[in-house]
């Protein structure tokens, strides 16, 4: 039953040759958007970028736009996935990407947010947080790209 439903969604998505490329463009533009904004906060935590503002100010100014970008990513992503769900589920790169994405989002809205919000956290904590955040998001990008090569 579930399989049948998945198949009919895939058929709908594959009925036009434009759906996949357009969804992909939105996906790419939006991930560049959201990861870039998260990187702006990370740069501030590392001690460069927008230094005249505190990390909490950079976070507050970018957070709504990051969330908007992530929302577009998380709407376009499943469309791409559903166009060929079984292929993706068997793709090791895709599976890796999903774990990395879950970890990155979780980290971003817990520890990362906490450290960026408290302007009193020590420099060492800030640097480690920023590096972990950058590594996680870069892994997500790599995982996504390697889907096509796995």
């Amino acid at each position: 039953m579930l399989l049948l439903q998945i198949n009919s969604i895939a058929d709908a998505l594959n009925s036009s040759e434009w759906v996949f490329p357009i969804a992909e463009c939105f996906h790419i533009a939006a991930f560049a958007w959201s990861i870039g904004l998260i990187a702006a906060v990370d740069y501030r935590l590392l001690g460069f970028g927008i230094q005249h503002s505190s990390p909490s100010e950079v976070l507050r100014d970018t957070a709504p736009w990051t969330l908007l970008g992530l929302a577009v990513v998380l709407l376009s992503g499943p469309l791409l996935f559903l166009s060929d769900a079984r292929m993706y589920l068997h793709n090791p790169s895709f599976v890796f990407k999903m774990y990395a994405l879950a970890a990155a989002i979780l980290f971003n809205y817990t520890i990362h947010r906490h450290v960026a919000k408290s302007d009193s956290s020590s420099q060492a904590v800030r640097v480690v947080t920023a590096i972990v955040s950058l590594v996680l998001w870069v892994s997500v990008v790599f995982g996504g790209l390697f889907i096509a090569f796995a």
């Binding site: 991930f31 870039g36 904004l37 990187a39 390697f146």
Partner: peptide, 16 residues
Amino acid sequence: SLHMVGISLFGGMILV
């Protein structure tokens, strides 16, 4: 992949 990472870093800054 590194091209994509560059796009995120550069694109984000352009966006801000």
